[in-house]
Simulated assay, not measured.
Amino acid sequence: MIEIPSDLHKDVVSLAFLLGTWEGAGVYDFPGTEKCNFGQEVVFRHDGRPFIEYRSRTWVLDEAGEKIRPLENEHAFWRVTTNQHGAGGEREIEVSSVRDDGTVEIWYGKLHDGKPQIDIATDAVARIEGAPAYSGGKRLFGLVNEDLLWVGEKAAPEVPLRPYMSAQLKKVLNPAQLVRDVNDLPDDGIAFFR
């Protein structure tokens, strides 16, 4: 079930399925780098303004699933606009992001009608001098059986666009929400089961 917070800005209600903290694991594989399994924590949150804040932290995992070292961090802001040129006013996604390796990206894409799925692609990429070679990418996010799945594609001057990173993430329970839910139970607790 997707819960829509009462203070969520109306412009980003269509992104409510992303809200929360998600954790899981995936695979990283790009030419010229070490192929590895990685762990990931993603947080989508809002503060009432017309965007969703996104934070992602990833780390390399060993064979036992233990953290070895950081892989990459990313911070972004997601906005929803309505394309007045499309039939029915298609919802479009605009994302501005920065990664810890010195890469800044502007992404555009769309939110699919009738399903929690988002496709985005880079429109602009800027890099500091020491950042790895990178010329653009695509990402697909989707809610499947209550898990957040995503796949990223990446291109570099010497490597055509190809899948390089994907993960399956599960929503982390919020202890504050659990306390509110417990407070909603009948006083004796037994009446709940009757």
Rank of each mutant, 00 (worst) to 15 (best):
P163Q: 01
V182A: 11
R91T: 11
V95S: 12
N73F: 04
V95K: 09
S135V: 02
D119Y: 01
R91D: 12
G130D: 05
G89D: 04
R162G: 08
Y134V: 00
E53C: 15
T122M: 09
P175M: 03
W78F: 14
L178V: 02
V172P: 15
N183Q: 05
W59Y: 13
R162N: 09
A133E: 05
N174D: 15
Y164W: 13
R57N: 15
S96G: 06
I128R: 15
G48D: 10
V98R: 10
Q117F: 11
P163C: 02
L148E: 11
S166W: 00
K154W: 06
P175A: 04
D181S: 14
P157M: 00
L61H: 05
A155Q: 10
E53H: 15
A64C: 04
E105V: 03
G152V: 07
E146F: 00
E66T: 09
E74F: 11
L140G: 01
D123Q: 07
Q117H: 11
Y164Q: 13
D123R: 10
D47V: 05
T103M: 09
E90W: 12
S56Q: 07
Q84E: 14
S135I: 01
R57S: 11
Y164K: 14
R139V: 04
L149E: 12
A131G: 10
S97P: 10
D113W: 09
W107E: 06
A121F: 02
T81V: 13
A124K: 14
G89V: 00
Q117C: 08
V98G: 15
A124M: 10
D181C: 15
G88E: 09
I52L: 06
A126L: 04
A76H: 14
E94P: 14
E129G: 11
